[in-house]
Computed example of a mutant assay.
Amino acid sequence: MRAADGFTGRANSTLTCGDPGVPVPEALAVTERFAREHGIKPTAHVVMGSQFEQAIADAGWQVDLDHPGGAESLVMTGPLEKFADGVAENRDLPGWWELAAGSEVRAVHRHVLGTGNVCRASLDENGTVIAAVRGCVVEDLLHVARLAVRPSHRRQGLATRLMGQLAGWGLEQGATTCVLQVASHNEAAIRLYEELGCTEHHRYRYWVPPAVS
């Protein structure tokens, strides 16, 4: 169970990746109680096709079609060595936070995006950050998130360049494989990651009680 004051779906949901040790309706009731205690929306992060997805549906929960990031996401993985190109610098620039996390940067943003062996990589032009990405190495995996390019600088290959530099940083940290998550409707991003050598590992959806759907 995870709570982060509403910042990102993954950091504010219950991950259903194994047997909860109690009947599913009871586990979902605990999820709702946890959410109320932390002031967040009760949400279950459910791998599509998993053994518990049908049980969650049978308990009356529904896919969160109103989720800001979309109802369905892909988890994609790929070898870093295939697209590594250079080594990113970990720079804590104000422009990075504004582009990757939004104009109102709060303590929770810094906690979620700054915890662990993290690299906040960026590309800048005349002192202005024009592309940003976050990577975090856990064992041999480089977890990639918050890739963003300013609208005025898109379609110039900056995302590919920045991902290549982040991959180089990940290799230096001992990672061999990248893992990232992307909304199923974001076809442009999916094509980018496929061009880098990433493939779909699985998909997941967020489920919520009918009262908050």
Rank of each mutant, 00 (worst) to 15 (best):
A3R: 07
P79M: 04
E104W: 00
G127R: 03
G168Q: 07
L15G: 02
R10K: 09
G69N: 10
V22F: 06
Q173C: 07
W61R: 00
L80T: 10
L162Q: 11
L171C: 06
R155M: 08
A71P: 09
V133N: 14
C119M: 14
P68R: 07
Q165L: 04
H67A: 14
L141T: 14
M1A: 11
D19E: 12
L15N: 05
E139L: 07
R134K: 12
G78R: 09
Q173D: 06
D64E: 12
V133A: 15
R154G: 10
L113K: 01
E172P: 00
E89Y: 05
A183D: 15
C17W: 13
F83P: 14
P94A: 07
T199D: 08
L180S: 10
M163F: 09
H111R: 15
G60A: 10
E89H: 12
V138D: 13
P210E: 09
V22R: 14
G114H: 01
H111P: 00
V112Q: 02
Q173K: 13
G18R: 11
T31Y: 01
S13L: 06
S50F: 06
D64L: 04
L142G: 12
H67T: 06
Q173N: 13
P209Y: 02
W207P: 01
A189W: 13
D140S: 02
L192R: 12
A57Q: 01
E89A: 15
P25G: 04
K82G: 12
H109V: 02
R36V: 03
V108A: 05
F34I: 03
G6P: 04
A29C: 05
N12G: 02
Q165W: 02
V46I: 14
L65E: 14
H45Y: 08
A175M: 03
D85S: 09
E200D: 10
N117G: 02
N186L: 06
Q173F: 04
C198L: 11
G102V: 05
A71G: 05
T176L: 14
D19Y: 08
D19P: 08
V46R: 04
T43H: 01
A211T: 13
T77W: 00
P79Y: 04
W96S: 01
R161S: 14
W169I: 05
H202A: 00
A188V: 15
A71M: 06
P210M: 08
S103Q: 14
Q156H: 04
L166I: 03
H201Y: 06
L142S: 13
L80P: 04
I190G: 01
C17Y: 10
A57G: 03
D58N: 13
M1F: 07
V208E: 07
F34C: 03
A167R: 05
W207M: 15
L93M: 08
A27I: 06
Y206F: 14
A29T: 07
E98G: 01
T115L: 08
